[in-house]
Design a protein around this nucleic acid. Structure first.
Lengths: 254, 254
DNA sequence: CGAAGCGTTGAGTGCTTTCAATAGTTGTGG
DNA sequence: CCACAACTATTGAAAGCACTCAACGCTTCG
């Protein structure tokens, strides 16, 4: 790679092979030939600005998106205009697959900050799955992971008090950043308090109050969007202090 | 036109072709040859009694289940033993697919009453998806439907008051029965109040009170497990009492 | 600079939960 | 067959957590 001047970067083809994230959005152990085939299908690096939509609810579904940078919020909305945030998505995640059954999107995806994504035409991807077995497996993998994540979310909203929900949310974010090589204890929240509250099934005021609480207790420092976690274990304690859950189960195999 | 080969009627086992539910658990428009192949893979009619588990969390994942009769509850449990019911499943539904990513089950499935299921070895099924494209599509379809359903559930628990949640739950059940040719206004609840409460993120007492409340208002009659819905529109009004949400789609057979 | 939007904080209300007691149901063993 | 235990369901009363309403400070941006 020549690192000369500002020359046409566009000439340097960004491929999955030199994308640091491909381990996240592609199946493991893809052979080079397969990756080439995939590369031919993918439209790379579409850049989107904060507030831009990747897709909207009821749009025809024909593209899957892989996040390269930035962060994206997915949400479903109701006729009344009420919104339900279903998740925040970071680089390496694949978006849009949940629309397979309907042929149109059932949620919307909007950039929370400037972001870049790869676009993958779904019909082409589906063709590829027949040639690359692990690709098919991977799509199922991605979807089943979303299901698990949703179940987790359900359990959280259904059973955990507000305190624990926010703590869990922050820990989850921390872990994601950590896994991507960023600091797990200091990061910026790209989403608004409103979005957080919505995702967690809380009122904005409650989220705000909880941030203050956590700060008062020395668990973290929060200033606007900037978060510094001082006591991860303390936050974890908060997540486990749900009313209806007494003893830490050892390892009895049910 | 292919005319079907002569078969020995006396030797007819239960096949997908003569199962009244195959439209629900199999992809549409499967050719006869394909169905035969599928038939060879499926172990039919395993009978399970109330309380028996189809699979448990952490079990190795190697089988997908199609419900033929009865009803099944799926739930996940957290490290400490707390349970979260993730759904009730009726004949025609496919269970277990959400474990694809982990190779072991992340939820448990237990019969709420005597039931019979078909077992489909997943590795064989995965092989078949390469030979039968629509089969692959169908599996994605099933999973993306589950994701949508989970999102719906999330929205419900996050945003709707208790009243609306139970009303919506009953309407959903009603619709499912209706779609399967049973009465949409009179049926039995195979699950306990506890299970309902758990699914809806409520306390058992709240569910009980709401049943009484609905009965007082003449919306339905409930006696133990037996439900008669008198005023479907009235129930729908209840679900829209909150700032948002759902109109259960009629005629979508999921 | 002023308007608009986001975020924080306070006070009061209310929906749901928890606690508690009573019935109805199921199952088991004498 | 009945008795007793265990479980499920219903109902009441009181308490609590999170929400709504409301005001204010801070930030962003035209």
């Amino acid at each position: 790679m020549k690192d000369s001047t500002v020359v046409d970067l566009s000439a340097i083809r960004t491929t999955c092979q030199n994308c640091g994230l491909y381990q996240l959005c592609l199946p493991m152990g893809l052979e080079e030939g397969d990756m080439d085939r995939l590369d031919k299908v993918i439209k790379r690096r579409r850049k989107i600005e904060k507030g831009d939509h990747l897709y909207r609810m009821r749009d025809a579904f024909n593209t899957v998106y892989a996040i390269r940078s930035g962060s994206v919020k997915t949400y479903t909305s109701i006729e009344n205009g009420a919104e339900q945030v279903t998740g925040f998505h970071l680089p390496g995640e694949l978006l849009g697959l949940n629309a397979v059954s309907t042929k149109f999107h059932t949620d919307s995806a909007v950039a929370l900050e400037t972001a870049s994504v790869c676009e993958i035409p779904f019909d082409r991807l589906e063709d590829l799955t027949r040639e690359i077995p692990s690709m098919q497996h991977h799509m199922l993998h991605v979807m089943s992971e979303e299901i698990q994540s949703d179940h987790c979310q359900l359990m959280m909203i259904a059973k955990m008090p507000a305190e624990a929900r926010l703590a869990r949310f922050l820990l989850s974010l921390s872990m994601h950043f950590g896994n991507r090589g960023f600091s797990a204890t200091e990061f910026n929240l790209s989403m608004s308090r409103n979005d957080i509250a919505n995702l967690l099934g809380l009122a904005v005021e409650t989220v705000s109050r909880l941030f203050s609480h956590f700060q008062d207790e020395g668990l973290l420092t929060v200033e606007r969007k900037h978060i510094v976690i001082h006591d991860i274990d303390g936050l974890m304690d908060v997540t486990t202090k749900c009313p209806s859950q007494p003893l830490p189960n050892k390892k009895s195999s049910d």
